[in-house]
């Protein structure tokens, strides 16, 4: 036996609803992070109009939009992808805010550890890159580009076409949503495990020697989870940009 009570996973991720329409903690976090994203950019715009040199919120917003433009769009789509800058910037901040609640004391739950919103976002990206590809290339050319990639010997199409069909239209949204969801769930479980272990060591008298180390590891993992929640928002956004870029600019 483990020797200590570890909470079952349903207690770690399921919350009672308290509001209208079954609103619970997860839904509330999503509402708050959507409002935070809106407020962040609205304040930045309102302040940036008045100031010649942006300070405070406006400076952070400007450098983060610059980050999305230089690190995400320019690397994957080039200047033509600037149309998608508002979509990708808001998507990045929405995912980042709902992830970062993982380490905020008193909340300590990454809303993306429930799979509903990652699936919705992944389906949104799926819809956008398909529609963008069909509008840009025309439906026949677009699906021909997906199913029969150029530069492949004719006989190999027997093998390549089913693989491309499954990987482009089915696995892409699935892996996009599962990646975000599973990373946040794993981070939440790790933090819960080390918190339970630290609490158990607090009560045992003999282990007072090792207690500081387990607590320090918990603090270190908190810092690591900040990195993970930033990285997952970045990866989700950059993969969305790669998929849209691939649909708009086919391989030749």
């Amino acid at each position: 036996m483990l020797g200590l009570e570890f909470p079952p996973i349903s207690e770690l991720v399921e919350w009672k609803s308290f509001g209208p329409g079954g609103l619970n903690k997860v839904g509330l976090i999503y509402v708050v992070s959507a409002l935070l994203t809106i407020a962040f950019f609205m304040t930045a715009v309102a302040k940036g109009r008045k100031q010649r040199v942006p300070t405070g919120v406006a400076a952070i917003a400007e450098s983060s939009v610059d980050f999305v433009r230089n690190q995400i769009i320019m690397q994957t789509m080039g200047t033509e992808g600037m149309v998608y800058l508002p979509l990708l910037a808001t998507m990045f901040f929405f995912i980042f805010f709902s992830n970062i609640f993982e380490i905020i004391p008193g909340v300590q739950f990454p809303a993306n550890a429930r799979i509903a919103m990652p699936i919705v976002l992944a389906l949104l990206v799926w819809l956008i890159f398909n529609v963008a590809g069909i509008v840009k290339q025309g439906p026949i050319q677009y699906f021909k580009g997906i199913l029969f990639p150029p530069g492949v010997p004719k006989a190999l199409y027997l093998l390549v076409t089913p693989i491309e069909l499954v990987s482009t239209l089915l696995v892409r949204p699935l892996s996009l949503s599962v990646r975000l969801f599973a990373n946040m769930l794993a981070g939440h479980l790790i933090l819960a495990t080390f918190a339970v272990l630290s609490a158990a060591l607090f009560s045992a008298s003999i282990s007072i020697v090792v207690m500081p180390f387990s607590f320090l590891l918990l603090v270190f993992l908190m810092g690591f989870e900040i990195l993970v929640s930033f990285l997952q928002a970045f990866i989700f956004t950059i993969l969305a940009a790669v998929y849209i870029g691939g649909a708009v600019h086919p391989e030749h």
Binding site: Q71, A182, A186, F234, I235, I238
Partner: peptide, 27 residues
């Protein structure tokens, strides 16, 4: 280094997906 780092994160993301499928499947 900038380009390499972006591509590296992409590669990690694609590779890591398989482990995460296993993680979810185990639940």
């Amino acid at each position: 280094a900038g380009v390499v780092r972006t591509t590296m994160f992409l590669g990690i993301a694609f590779t890591e997906a398989l482990a995460l499928f296993g993680f979810v499947l185990s639940f």
